[in-house]
């Protein structure tokens, strides 16, 4: 049933693909965390622009990620914007999770007591300094666990990139399977890799959390 020789044969290929998966996750999450923060900040700073952001966020959250990936990869070129598979995939994942992250940040902002804003006004702090020095440092630590959950969720969704043939883990496992007609080892290894990485990330996030709480 399980062939160890074959396993060791495909390990280097899968390891390269694993690096691709980690890269896609890291880049995707950087986009998600940054764009999400920008969206939430726009909503905070310009309540009038809030409606636009809300519509955008709802639009992104209410359609499947797979469709968004297809849209960026297959439809955008019709408008003259051609992205390679990796860029399109990472951008789609990043923007999709940015919508979720923006809601997390919003909850974080709303959690900062009104008195903090009022004290900032009383001290005549500029809006920018109020945001940067007073509001953000209090809004971020409580939402780290929620952001961490989205990091892991995003990571587990990277196999969707195989739909546009990005050579991440799932696509590589499929390729190995179709060439050798052996699926047990590659697919199992991919599963184990995701399990281990998710557990490691969860551990890191928990450490970060307790470090933030101790401060």
């Amino acid at each position: 049933m399980w062939d160890w020789t074959f396993t060791f044969e495909i390990l280097p290929v899968l390891a390269r693909a694993a690096i691709m998966t980690v890269e896609a996750t890291a880049l995707g999450f950087i986009i998600a965390a940054t764009v999400g923060l920008v969206l939430a900040s726009i909503r905070l700073a310009f309540p009038s622009a809030g409606v636009v952001v809300t519509i955008l966020v709802e639009l992104i959250r209410s359609t499947p990620l797979l469709i968004q990936i297809f849209f960026l990869y297959f439809v955008l070129p019709k408008a003259g914007i051609v992205l390679d598979a990796f860029t399109a995939g990472v951008a789609a994942i990043g923007i999709h999770y940015a919508a979720y992250c923006s809601e997390v940040y919003r909850a974080g902002f709303e959690n900062v007591p009104r008195g903090q804003w009022e004290a900032s006004i009383a001290l005549n702090l500029s809006p920018w300094n109020t945001f940067k020095d007073i509001i953000l440092p209090q809004a971020l630590p409580p939402v780290v666990p929620a952001l961490g959950n989205y990091l892991i969720a995003l990571f587990k969704e990277t196999p969707l990139l195989s739909a546009i043939a990005v050579l991440e883990l799932m696509q590589t496992a499929k390729n190995i399977g179709s060439e050798t007609f052996r699926y047990t080892e590659p697919v199992t290894l991919v599963g184990v890799f995701f399990l281990v990485m998710s557990l490691v990330s969860a551990g890191i996030i928990r450490m970060l959390e307790s470090w933030l709480q101790r401060r």
Partner: peptide, 27 residues
Amino acid sequence: IGMVFQSFNLFPHMTAMGNCIEAPITV
């Protein structure tokens, strides 16, 4: 104008010193 509030409204992520120098430095 300066104001002192019923609920203090100190910045919880800054020390007593940090609270007292934030505005003088940035403003």
